[in-house]
Amino acid sequence: MALIQFREAIGQAMAEEMARDDRIFLMGEEVAQYNGAYKVSKGLLEQFGPRRVWDSPISEAGFAGLGIGAAMVGLRPIIEMMTWNFGIQGFDQIVNHAAKMCYMSGGQFNVPIVFRGPNGAAHMLGSQHSQSFDAMLTNVPGMKVISPSTPYDAKGLLKSAIRDNNPVIFLESEMMYGMKGEVPEGEYLIPIGVGDIKRAGEHVTIIAWNKMLHVAMAAAEQLAEAGISAEVLDPRTLQPLDEDLIFNSVRKTHRLVIVDEGWDFAATSAQISDRVQKECFDDLDAPVARVNSLFVPMPYAEDLEHAVLPTAERVVAAVKEVMYVD
């Protein structure tokens, strides 16, 4: 197993798939000559040439739509959004066109496309660069949404996303690109829609994904010191959600805390909470607790930003709440 960065894992997934299938091309701002704003696509232009790797103009709606058109007639585009904050310029194309095309054409035109890029807050980037769009994206039928937390998961899931014949949204994080993790040398795929228990435990289930998984893992460490055994569950895919894995864990631990970087109102965590109270009502020993970002635009100042985002301390407090301990 090689220890590689998250960005390298994504880059490897793209390179392996592009080598396998000539129909795949990559397009986005700075992905070619600059090697990617976050160096995720480093070396791809050199390896595959300008026919396969395209620097786009700063026109997210335009190149999202271009990708959709190309996908409708047989290509398999990977469209990089430099950040999903810019990606919402392309929401019309993603929501009104990519997600609807297969359905409204009666199954004639499927759209095999991946829209990928970092989602959520980085650090001190202010209101327009620190948003988490999971809930908005998972609210639309017709596309799959993946949000991995480790280099291993990112590589295996991105390869599956690229091979999927439907629109797939792939959510990354600026804060995780430099994070290292073990990734095997050979090819592997992780199926879309299958979650993973990142830490087994007995007393409480903590669900978290993307960089919040690492917040949850830190909280689990602190809880272990206090004698509380937390199970940390990473759904990895948000749409479709691995509900069975979630229900089985809750039926074992009887308590659930969900950590979600999205704003608390109508959040992905609220959807999970709703499903759990419906399916596991008799198994729950406490109401489901949610730890979300506070419902304000992201402030710039470091202490203010820190106050908005979920932290290990807030997760520990939420676990103690559902455990009824101080």
């Binding site: 709606a61 190149f63 739509g65 271009l66 058109g69 190309a70 409708m72 007639v73």
Partner: peptide
């Protein structure tokens, strides 16, 4: 209109 550009791209 951008979808059309994508079909042109594929051609």
């Amino acid at each position: 209109t951008p979808i059309a550009a994508g079909v042109g791209f594929a051609i």
